[in-house]
Design a protein around this nucleic acid. Structure first.
Lengths: 153, 153
DNA sequence: TATAAATTATTTGTATAGCAAATAATTTGT
DNA sequence: ACAAATTATTTGCTATACAAATAATTTATA
C-alpha cells in the first residue's frame, strides 16, 4: 500500500468520523425533539448561563437576529426564560428553566462519550499515536490556534 | 500531562479540524456564490452526470422534494439542465452546463488539498501515526464500514 | 445639562433548506 | 386492459440565516 493509498484512506476515515458525529447528533435531535441549533444553544446556556443574546450569537457565530428566533422557539417550549437585565435595561439575560437544564443533561453526546470511553481503554502506544496524529492533522490545516467550539450536527 | 488531559486535547483538536473544514467550505460558498447543498450537488453531478433526481437525492441523503428545489435554483443560475429521459419518460436526467462544469472545477476544496499536500510531506513515522490514529478513531466510533461521503459545510 | 452617538434586542422582509403528503405522468405487473 | 408501482413535482408547513430598519436605553460629547 503506497502513500497515496494511505492518504486516501486517511481522508476516507476523516469523512467517516464527520459522518458519524453528524449522525449521532441527528439522533440526539430526534430524541430531544430539538433542532441542531436549538440543542447547541441549550448546551451553551447550560455551560454559561446567564448569557445575553449578543453573547450567545457571538458564541454560535450567528447573527443576533437569527438567535432571537431560536430563543423564541426555546422559550415557547418552556426551556429558556428571558429576564430583562437590571443594570442595563436594553439587555436580556437568558436563563435555562428546570426543564431546560434537564434537557441539557439528558441530551446525549454520543460520539463524544464513545471517544472518551474508547480512548481511555486504548493501550499506551496506540493512544499516543492518536494524540500525535490529531496534532499533525491540526497543524497541516494551520488551525492550532483556533479556539475549539463544540461539535454540532 | 495525564491521560485525561490528552483526551481533552484530542477532542479539542477534533473540534478544530471540524471547524477548519466548515470554515474553508464556507469560503468556497462565498467565492462561488452557491450555498453548501448547491455546491455539493454540483460536485456530485460533476463526478457522475447524468444523474436522476432520485439518484441525487439518495446520494445526498435528502428527500427528493428537497432536491427538486436545489435543482430549480441551480437551473435558474444556468449551471444545470434537466433533460427528460428517452427510455423512461417519467425520469429526468440532470446534466451540468459548461458553466456548471467550470464552477465544479473552480470551486476549491481547500481543506482537502491542504491535507493531501501536507500528508505527502510528512516524515514516515509521523505519517504512519496519522494513519493509525485515524483508524483508531474510526474504530472507537464503530463506523469502519461506513461508506464515506464527501466533506461538506 | 442637553443632545448626539453608540449599543442592545427586536421586527420585518427575503432566501434557502428540509420534510410529508398529495398529484400527475408513465411504466410495469397481472 | 387494468391495477400497482415508480418518478418527479407541487403544495403546505417549519426552521435557519442574514440584512436593514426600529425602539429602547446607555454612553459620550459639546
Amino acid at each position: 500500500m503506497d502513500r497515496a493509498e494511505v492518504i486516501q484512506e486517511i481522508l476516507d476515515n476523516l469523512r467517516r468520523i464527520f459522518q458519524a458525529i453528524n449522525e449521532y447528533s441527528r439522533n440526539a435531535e430526534k430524541e430531544t425533539g430539538l433542532t441542531g441549533p436549538q440543542l447547541w444553544a441549550i448546551k451553551l446556556l447550560d455551560e454559561t448561563a446567564p448569557m445575553r443574546v449578543s453573547q450567545l450569537a457571538e458564541a454560535m457565530f450567528l447573527h443576533p437576529a437569527t438567535v432571537v428566533g431560536i430563543i423564541d422557539r426555546l422559550e415557547n417550549k418552556g426551556l429558556v426564560t428571558r429576564i430583562r437585565s437590571q443594570e442595563d435595561r436594553r439587555a436580556v439575560d437568558l436563563h435555562l428553566t428546570q426543564a431546560g437544564e434537564d434537557m441539557a443533561a439528558q441530551a446525549p453526546e454520543v460520539a463524544q462519550s464513545m471517544l472518551i470511553h474508547g480512548l481511555n481503554l486504548l493501550p499506551a502506544a496506540e493512544f499516543h499515536c492518536v494524540g500525535e496524529g490529531m496534532k499533525h492533522m491540526v497543524r497541516l490545516l494551520g488551525v492550532e490556534h483556533l479556539t475549539p467550539r463544540p461539535l454540532r450536527g
